[in-house]
Nucleic acid binder design. Structure first.
Lengths: 205, 205
DNA sequence: ACAGGTGGGAAGACCGGTCTGTCTTCCCCC
DNA sequence: GGGGGAAGACAGACCGGTCTTCCCACCTGT
């Protein structure tokens, strides 16, 4: 029927457009992670995601029934690979005691704030972009609560009194320093760390 | 020409749709303030602003050459009427000494967090929505810096040492408590206030 | 080993809706 | 009669999402 058929295009080149993972779903997730984490959720459209990951639109919607479902997957990935592996595990590695591990969170933050691709915490950002009542906002709140649970567990290991209240106060310092770092205060992590020292002191026995 | 002319509609009713100010520009600003402060900037379109303020589209664009220019006007109004009159003046009124005035910020925050129409700080929200490089993001950063300047001035009145560093630390507590309040922690202001007490203590002489 | 079927993926047209912003038309009031 | 404003059509871009068309790689039966 078609006299010139479909041009073979790039049987390989297009497939590895991002030189990333071979499978479509992995490439979509990798592109989504990069775009969502640096530019937010509302600013990135499905068409751009498709183009950048070198995937057909039908393929995208076979793996993810809607854009929101991709955002859910992104938040989960962000929790695993950024919160857990990037921040909390690293902080545990750097400190030899639970107290030191709590303070090391802000050392890791300091390194993070000085990265040039630093662009704020995705959970806070999505929560504010979508609102706390939106399913994606609620999911973000859940992931933030998960972080708080982790902090609380370390606080209990450290023998701090009222660990839940401690964790909530420490998260105020964490969130506040992130926001301030977005504004350009690269020393925000040090200021928060100092306040964390006082906070730990008042929860010790 | 038109056999039925244009229906007189509501020569008065529509004009006072929001039962607000009589002049178009004031009605637009009042509607914009309510919608932007509760739902953010990206979620509110020009058509909705026009409909809610009972104004013609041409009238809107005569007063504001673009939506962004209206957002600029909103940020300025937010600074005057929320930051200055709502928070900082009220905090100064509640405290009899500069130290008390600094702590009173968090008392005012506590009342604010418990309002049911509480929806986060517009400056932080716009900065994250648009990004710190966007003109609106930069303007938001400027207004946040203005708040910091005010805090610094009160810190100087209180005779605190290193007032700039103090102000930056206090703003971490302010921003962090606001974010945490969005998540539903209504006691965030009290936690931040306690940390502010320690912060003041370490900057006193 | 080879023909034929089959299903996944790429490309992209298309749909209805929404976005910002322009322009026209008409009316009312000064 | 002239200017401001209300109403709203319109333009052009983009949104999320559906669907069609074609191609190719792999699997199966003989």
């Amino acid at each position: 029927m078609n006299p010139e058929a479909k041009v073979p295009a790039f049987p390989e080149a297009a497939a590895v457009a991002e030189s990333g993972p071979a499978h479509s779903v992995d490439r979509i997730l990798a592109v989504a992670y990069e775009l969502f984490s640096t530019r937010g959720v509302r600013d990135v459209g499905v068409n751009e995601l498709i183009e950048r990951s070198g995937v057909a639109k039908a393929t995208f919607y076979r793996h993810f029934p809607s854009k929101d479902s991709l955002v859910f997957a992104f938040l989960e990935q962000r929790d695993k690979q950024w919160t857990m592996d990037g921040i909390l595990s690293e902080a545990r590695r750097r400190g030899s005691t639970p107290q030191e591990q709590l303070l090391a969170i802000f050392d890791v933050f300091g390194d993070w704030f000085r990265r040039e691709d630093f662009e704020a915490c995705s959970f806070v950002r999505v929560m504010l972009e979508m609102g706390p009542a939106h399913p994606l906002g609620k999911a973000s709140i859940d992931y933030l609560a998960k972080i708080r649970g982790h902090v609380r567990a370390v606080a209990e290991e450290a023998g701090l009194v009222r660990p839940e209240e401690f964790a909530r106060s420490l998260l105020i310092l964490m969130k506040g320093s992130v926001i301030q770092a977005v504004e350009g205060d690269t020393l925000a992590a040090d200021r928060a760390r100092q306040m964390a020292v006082w906070l730990i002191g008042h929860h010790s026995g």
